[in-house]
Design a binder for these strands. Structure first.
Lengths: 153, 153
DNA sequence: CTCATCTCAGTCAGACTGACATTC
DNA sequence: CGAATGTCAGTCGGACTGAGATGA
């Protein structure tokens, strides 16, 4: 119990799931950004590299769909990754509208570094929760998110 | 048909709490924004009015602290609320650096409307969860958020 | 003097929109 | 033809920074 709680959060906000999610995400995002910045990356780039590592070479549109990133933002992120030699962009001979994006060896190494940095962020973020609670939170958010994705197509 | 139907989310992202939170918050935020926009408001304004309703007239700095809004953004939001006669801004005679912000009768009515709209948003957002699960999610996020707030002091 | 409050100007990155040319 | 792809230009609102003026 605080004695002089001069700055409590209004109950309407504190009890509102939408507010909890968006507000928590501000903090989560900052932690993630800092971790990525320390490794010269942004979260879009991590997402794209993760998709490439798991699904192999893909078109930009496919990457965007898998990661929930807009096509136009994929362009910019891929430009950046290409400049750093973390991915390669080559025209797809089978469909000349498309580019095939491929993770380079350097990209794989960078991804491994970022994985580690991100793992540390989860630890910071979820410090007050034990393993079972973390799994619960993950499961609940997954269901909420999947529902939203279903609505949004 | 294209090769795979599949635009699955990369496992690294789908299993990462920070990503779940930030990504879910994008959808939550959009729902909230739309609900507020339909009532001519933004989420900062709702937060400020909620704080005023619960704690009574306050200085702008106190409002900002309670809602987690930067002082400079409080200025802009209060400007907007004043223009719409939803709050009053009067100099504090006891401390002439401060403004005392007070919720007007119109502000209270608007707040009630927004409460209702926001309630509907929670329903949309959490549709896949039952009551017990919603409480779990709320409790878990509360603990995570409070931990982050404590770190950010 | 130090600190808090209010204000303004401006930056930053993410999310998104609209348009266009190219290709399927 | 309609639909998908990649690209670019630009908008929007939120989060934040820095500085200055005023007053406790």
């Amino acid at each position: 119990m605080e004695t002089t709680p001069s700055y409590e959060t209004p109950a309407r906000l504190a009890g509102m799931p939408s507010w909890l999610i968006t507000h928590t995400s501000v903090h989560a995002f900052r932690l993630v950004q800092e971790a990525f910045a320390a490794n010269g990356a942004r979260h879009y780039q991590y997402a794209l590299m993760a998709a490439l590592a798991e699904f192999g070479p893909s078109s930009q549109a496919a990457l965007g769909r898998r990661c929930g990133i807009d096509r136009s933002d994929v362009v910019a992120a891929v430009n950046d990754l290409v400049e750093r030699d973390l991915v390669e962009r080559t025209p797809d001979p089978a469909d000349r509208r498309r580019n095939t994006i491929t993770l380079t060896a350097a990209g794989k190494r960078r991804l491994a570094k970022l994985d580690k940095a991100l793992g540390a962020v989860q630890e910071q973020l979820l410090a007050p929760l034990n393993d079972a609670e973390r799994k619960q939170l993950t499961a609940l958010l997954t269901r909420v998110l999947e529902h939203q994705l279903r609505l949004a197509d």
